[in-house]
Each structure stands twice: as C-alpha cells, then as structure tokens.
Simulated scan of single mutants.
Amino acid sequence: MTTSISVICYKYKTLSNGENPLMVRISQNGKRKLVSLGISVNHKFWNFEKQKPKPNCPNKEQIEILITNKLNEFNNQIIEFKSENKDFTAKTLIEKVSKPVKRMNVNDLFLQEIAQLKKEERIRYAECHDYVYKSLLKFNKHLDIYFSDIDVQWLKKYEAWLRSQGNSENTIGFKFRTLRAMYNIAIKEGYVKAEFYPFKEYKVSKLHEDTPKRAIVKDNVKKIVSTSANNAYKELAIDLFTFSYFTGGINFTDMARIKHDNIIDGRLAYKRKKTKKLIQLPLQPKAMGIINKYKSPSNPYIFPILSTFHKTEQQKINRIHKVIGKVNKHLKALGVELDLDKKLTTYVARHSFSTTLKRSGVSTSLICEALGHSSEKITQIYLDSFENDQIDEAMSNLL
C-alpha cells in the first residue's frame, strides 16, 4: 500500500476573496482525497507545474513553512502507523492528523479527577488522589507540565525525593500507582500519546514491602469472642471484631453501612463500598446473634455507628472515622490484656478469617490467602465465583 502526500492549489474553486484554496492531496491505491490547508493564494502566484508558490508570491516564506510542517505531520503519522503495523486509509490518516492530542496539564487533570470522584461520592478515593496531588506539587514545585514530560528519569527523581522525605516503601508504591492510574486516564482521554508511557520501563511493582502477618490463630480468636466487656465501647469493639470474622472478613466501612435490608433468607448480601462488588455470605449463629442484639426499630443500620442523622457521604465518612478510632483503641487494649502477639484491630479479623480457613484445609482458590493484600479484585471474586453450598461448607470451619 503506497501513500503519497502533496499540497496543491485547487484551481477549480475560487473563494470570495478571489483566491484559490491550498489543499493537502492524499493519494492511496489510485484514489485521492483532499483536505484544506486553511489558507489560499491567488492562482497567478502559484506554480502549478511544481505545486509551490512563485518567487513573487506574498508571504511566500510563511506559506512554504506551513506547507512543510503540514506535510511533515502527515508523513510522520504514516510512519507511526507503519511502525505499529496498523492499516490505515486516507480518511483515518486525515482524522488522526486533524485531531491532534488534546492539551491538558497534570495539574488540571488531577483537579478534574478529584472533582469527579467527589461528585460520585467516592470521597476516600478523592482524598487519596488529593494526597498524591499535593505530594507531586511539593516535589515539582508546580504541575503546569504535560504527562509527556513525566518520563523515566522524572519518575526516578520523584522516587528518590520520596525516600529522602522518609516515605515507606508501600507509601511510595501507593503514590506511584495513583500517578500511573492518572497517566492511563490521560492516554485514554487523548491528552498524551501511548508511546510516551513511562511505566513500561519503570516498574511500579518493585515498590512493595511485605507487611507483618496480621492474622491470629483460631484459639486467640476464641479468646476474643468469649471475653466479657466492662463498658459499652469495649463490648461494641468485641462484637464488631466477631461479626467481621464470621462474615467473610467484612471491613469496618462496609460493616458500618450494612442495614437490616441486607439480611435476606439468613444470608448477608451487600455491595462493597470500595469495589461495588456484590458479596453474599451465610450468617453463622454468632453473627446472627450479634445482629439481633443490636437490632433497633429506630435505626435502619445494623450497628449503632451510623443513623438517619448521617445523611451526606461526608457525614458518614467522618462518623466512621471517629468510631473506628475508638473501636481500635479498645481492641488494642484487649490484645494487650489477652497477651496476644499482634496489635489487635478490626482488620486483623479480615486476615484471621482467611488464614483460619486455609489452615483448616479449605481451598486456597476459594478463600484467597491475600484477602485484599496483593489484589483487591481476587478478594471479591472468591466469594462471587463459587456456589452457596461451597461457601457454607467452607465457613463451617471458622471455630
């Protein structure tokens, strides 16, 4: 397939100013297509034999520069198509050249994404993006740069700076994963060409540090579950830990948001706030007992964390943040009281759930040992992809 590009003076059309338009002519497989160059000249100043302006043509040098630049655009795009082994037509070639990469700098795209996340009430994600945005701003002094400016060397400098600021390995990894996600958005929206993508060479996966195992053995779970509380908050902390352990390691945010409507035919069915994945679990007697304990006709939520007072997403987030701090404070004290070798938090229940099932011989593919560690997607999939009786049987091993 041969393609030739040239600029001609289209003498068959005369504009209102008496001049003829200059056109880019694309010849491919015996077919021709014309697209306007955006300027015109009087035909008496055009050399039709050589298809270029005559020496006496007004603005001759500027016209020649414009012609050269436009021919280069088309020829460079042809080279790009060929380097990627992509077939193209005259029409697709014109479309590609006529619709260049849109310009949006890093600063504006970050602010746009943060605003969109807030609009979707994904407040925690918005806060995370804002956290990374401020880090980048502090490092680079300004973000009036384009994504094509972020190359491998720039990323290495940012990594070195983060280390100099005392950031942990996992914190650095989080910031780079967020930046990589923003770069992918920029590519998708046409703000930067994929060929500039620096993360093929710069591997974010290296920025990971294994954290200490948070799971506790089944005997210690029994100690927690059977502990008597001497105050209401300690009792709530124990009940929330127990409920999480018996309901697939449900995290605190989702636990706070579940309502009585989520209890269907003796099962808990809810969508995770973080991933929107639907999870359905059998309710063990211990979990059902806790539900009945906190049941209140005046509150649609199962636990006394949220109520009808909390209407906006920000109100809910603030309340959950406040309560989880108090709950974890009591769990930490309980861990010391029981002489446990782990710092006790609600998240320990999540890890203990998966580890206990694994040690009981339950298939790793069913429970996914990481359970939110290496891949949040796997955490959700393991409950979605198996039949209810498989899940029911597996969870019978919890105590």
Rank of each mutant, 00 (worst) to 15 (best):
Y301H: 09
L111C: 04
L66M: 06
W46R: 03
Y12D: 14
I216N: 02
T89R: 09
E195P: 02
I5L: 04
I172L: 09
V132A: 12
V204C: 06
T171I: 06
M23L: 07
T355R: 05
V348T: 06
A269Q: 15
L344V: 03
L236H: 00
S228R: 10
N29G: 12
T68F: 03
R267F: 13
K175Y: 13
K274W: 02
F303W: 02
E376N: 06
T242D: 04
N262C: 07
E337F: 11
Y183G: 10
F241V: 03
L109K: 00
L344H: 01
Q28W: 12
K99A: 15
I290L: 13
K223P: 06
L366K: 13
T275M: 13
N29E: 09
D130Q: 15
N85C: 10
R177M: 08
K234E: 13
D265Q: 07
L340E: 09
L179H: 08
V221F: 07
T68H: 01
Q116I: 09
F48Y: 09
S164P: 02
A394Y: 03
N47T: 05
I8L: 04
N318W: 04
N105V: 02
C128G: 06
F176H: 08
P212Q: 12
G248F: 11
D254L: 06
R350K: 03
E159R: 09
I317G: 00
R350C: 00
I63T: 06
N72Q: 11
L344N: 01
K96A: 15
V192M: 09
N167E: 13
Y301A: 07
Y294T: 08
L162S: 04
I172M: 07
A215E: 08
L22E: 03
T364G: 14
N76I: 02
I250M: 15
I8K: 00
V217M: 09
L398D: 00
K13T: 00
S40A: 12
P304L: 15
K44Y: 01
K188M: 03
S352C: 13
G166C: 01
K54T: 14
Q112C: 02
Y245I: 05
K91L: 14
L136W: 02
N42R: 07
H260P: 00
S244W: 07
A215T: 05
N85R: 12
N230R: 10
I114W: 08
V132M: 08
S4Y: 07
A194T: 05
E393Q: 03
A181T: 14
Q280T: 14
F88V: 01
D130M: 08
Q153T: 11
W161N: 03
N167C: 15
I305N: 00
L283S: 05
S164E: 13
L117C: 14
L398A: 02
K138G: 01
Q165P: 05
S374D: 11
E387G: 04
I367R: 03
C368T: 09
E64F: 00
V336H: 14
D254E: 07
K11H: 07
D210V: 08
T247K: 05
M182E: 15
M1W: 10
A287G: 05
K271C: 13
N59P: 05
D261W: 03
S298Q: 03
C9F: 04
S307C: 12
K213R: 15
